[in-house]
Design a protein around this nucleic acid. Structure first.
Lengths: 206, 206, 206, 206
DNA sequence: CATGAATGAGAATTCATTCAT
DNA sequence: AATGAATGAATTCTCATTCAT
């Protein structure tokens, strides 16, 4: 019970911090504003996090977990299995849409991590480690299925495919989610259709 | 002469600020560190910039100029003209390489602006205004040449082409320059080759 | 309790500020000196007053309250009633003595306000508003009683009487309290006697 | 010639300083603003005055001279002689009007001195010394003429007369010049008439 | 456990003064 | 003599952190 209450408070602080960090950046955020946003007293924060920097570390740790969820192979695997009979590009579209939704859901936290990473080596290290660990696997999943038709597709190697695919995917995600573009223009499904079609067409042998 | 001296100092401060902003982020950067980096007294900064925020605005203004240089149509135009007889994909590779070099050269400033933009509405506004103004024009240049062969290429419209192309290009640029990937793995020329080949192959009719 | 503590601190700061302002003037006073005088940390000041200027505003607000006390009609009224049978000049002497004591008690704050007013329009406005509101009333009290004997006194009008009376009264107060004169020369009661006698004699018909 | 130019510059600085001191107070005034007001470079000020405080001292010295002019007995003497046949109250009115004009002319400088005096002991000392030296003389001039008619006037002594007269006079001057009252209400001549009538009537034997 | 008043180190900013030109 | 760029000590103000209640 007591533990539950403590957990609740910590969660309120965490969410408030995340919100304020996302809005102002870590440095410009004040613990006072976080406390207000969380609806707790200023001192309460320091019962759950030793320092302000510690909150950021907490965010990172949470992010790592979210990242696992984000790069959640079970759901990707499930998509592949459930649509085994469909052509590869159709499957990929479903995967990308699934990824987009996961990304969008965790965008807040991603944004904070990506911005702060640059300035905090420890955060950077945690992130890169996590990335290396997962990134390859996502592509391997894709490649596994591409490799089967090696007569049909160009032989580009994982690295190159990875560059192209992730560039397109994340480039598009960021453009959409950062409000760089007018938001409502093209629905995400349509955009994925176009981008995957070009990608797939692009890697075809000719 | 006197003017020259003042300009020199302002430039020293500007460059120092850019460096410190890039290293620590705007909020975490201190004017003391900027002053030290610039090799001037703390007070000197405020002879040239009213406030710390004003330095960032100065960086933005400089960026806008760099951006003009970056989206420098003269050099693009020149590439196109000088290589008129070459196939479109070859020309595009040259353009992208040119863009990459311009981007790399101004990466420091671009990075600062792109990151800080999120937290400063005034900077964001200045940037978006500039982007809208230029972005379309770059693509138009490309399209002009693609349109000629409309039997050969898919009819995708400027918007879609723009999304795909800028996603790939900037996605790749950021991946390379942010040190997200091991830096030196593939030479940029090779990477551009691959990416443009896929893009071009991708937009072909079939 | 908690409220009491906060109020105490604010009061300590207020009194310290008043003292330092009176000694050095607003501009030359430093928040560091105020903090030391108040026996609090430098930062504590800014928990209670947003800015240094705000402390002055606080002093003004306090002054306005003191002013009410200063121009306290209840005590004037009481003097009048308690001495109803005495001649008017005797009553007036008592009133002026009462005023002098009130003025002397609040001299510190009055001095700060009167001096700083010149440089701060907002303070000036607050003050004038208060003055207009009260000044007339004091004179009306006096006039009420003078009017009865209109055969005896010159018909000078409130404005002129007000000028003469306040000039004499405040001129004398300032001379005494500013140490412009050797301080202890004539006792205040004697001085009031003389001044009121002349005033009263002066407004007699002849 | 060169000397003349230097004197001119010093005078420009002096007048600018006086203006800025009067507007902002000594502490809040900046040498930069004084320089701008004077139309000289910031550094130039320090060729004529060693420090900012030194400018204030310069103002004081000037004030002492002005004060001599202000308490200028030649002009008072002249008024008395020129109007020998007129009644005393008429003469006094002329004198007070003359004083008011002198005071108004030097009000700027008086204001600065009176405010700063409190915070600078050296200025205070110079001022008090000067005051003592002159004040009595003015009254003596008046008394000389009052004494003649000692049957007609009360025997009040120089001190008491001085208090009453200067209180009325300066009280009125300050009220007028500080903009405490609505400025245009009563013309100064009319106000002097009333105040002197009351004063004179007030000191009559009865 | 939670609070919020108090702290004080540190950051931004100001400004009198100096000095090379 | 005059200039105005540069200085840096002093000042206002901020905010993470502590601790008595």
């Amino acid at each position: 019970m007591a533990t539950k209450k403590g957990t609740d408070t910590k969660e309120k602080i965490f969410n408030a911090a995340l919100k304020v960090f996302a809005k102002k950046g870590f440095s410009a955020a004040t613990t006072a504003e976080i406390a207000e946003e969380a609806g707790v007293a200023q001192g309460t924060i320091f019962r759950y996090y030793k320092t302000k920097k510690d909150i950021l570390r907490g965010v990172m740790i949470e992010y790592v977990d979210k990242f696992d969820e984000f790069a959640d192979f079970d759901s990707i695997q499930k998509i592949i299995e459930d649509n085994a009979e469909k052509p590869l590009d159709e499957i990929l579209k479903l995967i990308v849409l699934n990824r987009y939704k996961a990304f969008k859901k965790n965008f807040h936290i991603s944004k904070v991590i990506h911005y702060e990473m640059q300035f905090h080596d420890d955060i950077m290290d945690m992130h890169l480690k996590k990335c290396k660990e997962k990134e390859g696997l996502v592509m391997k999943h894709i490649l596994q299925h591409i490799d089967i038709d090696e007569d049909k597709y160009k032989k580009l190697g994982q690295k190159s495919l990875s560059i192209i695919f992730t560039s397109m995917m994340f480039g598009m995600f960021f453009q959409r989610l950062n409000g760089v573009r007018g938001n409502d223009e093209i629905p995400i499904e349509k955009e994925i259709d176009i981008i995957i079609d070009v990608f797939f067409n692009g890697i075809l042998k000719r």
